[in-house]
Amino acid sequence: MRSAVVVFPGINRERDMAIALAASSGRPPRMLWHTETDLTGLDLVVLPGGFSYGDYLRCGAMAAQSPVMRSVSAFARRGGYVLGVCNGFQILTEAGILPGALLRNAGLRFLSRDCYLRVERADTVFANNYQRGQVFRSPMAHGDGNYYADEATLDWLEGENLVAFRYASATGALTPEANLNGSARGIAGLYSRNLRVLGLMPHPENRVDPLLGGADGKPLFDALTAAFAPARP
């Protein structure tokens, strides 16, 4: 898998993401500075977590206007695979690549803790190592992860089956208590219509090694690696 991790000023999870990608694929990702625009030859572009441009104006607003994002938008339009985690998800919505927006957490607190995610569909390149309805544990760390879209957009997302993950209890129940940041319909992650762009707030890349408390996030990176493995003779 030929992947790249985009590095914006103020990002802080790019190395965690690079470690997760390299651990699964055996190949370190290219690190792409935000001023670069050449994405030639890449299977996957990853927008990692952090606080690009200090979250000034709105989370992801400045990054969405950067030179690299014009290339990422074009890459996504051509059918390229893009993963955006946390700030990366915020950037994808600010750039209009995914619908909706991420608001301040409903409880106003920055939430740095584990959460449970229910897999809403498993027939994608990102999630096919999970089962539909499976619950896995993932760290989360954000102040603005409260997913918002108007009702018509939410109905459209549900109708097109584009919800990737929802916040759930350990047993998979969708309860208000499990929906830690107050997201509309418990949405933690979303696909684009062609299922090639995934944005999510939690950090599966921080749970890919039993030494760090579990490997619940590793199936996602293994699935991507398998999808882009060179065909064997």
Binding site: L57, R58, A61, Q65, E94, P99, A101, Y148
Partner: peptide, 9 residues
């Protein structure tokens, strides 16, 4: 429209 406001919200 382009930057200062996110017209989604």
């Amino acid at each position: 429209r382009k930057l200062l406001a996110n017209t989604v919200i």
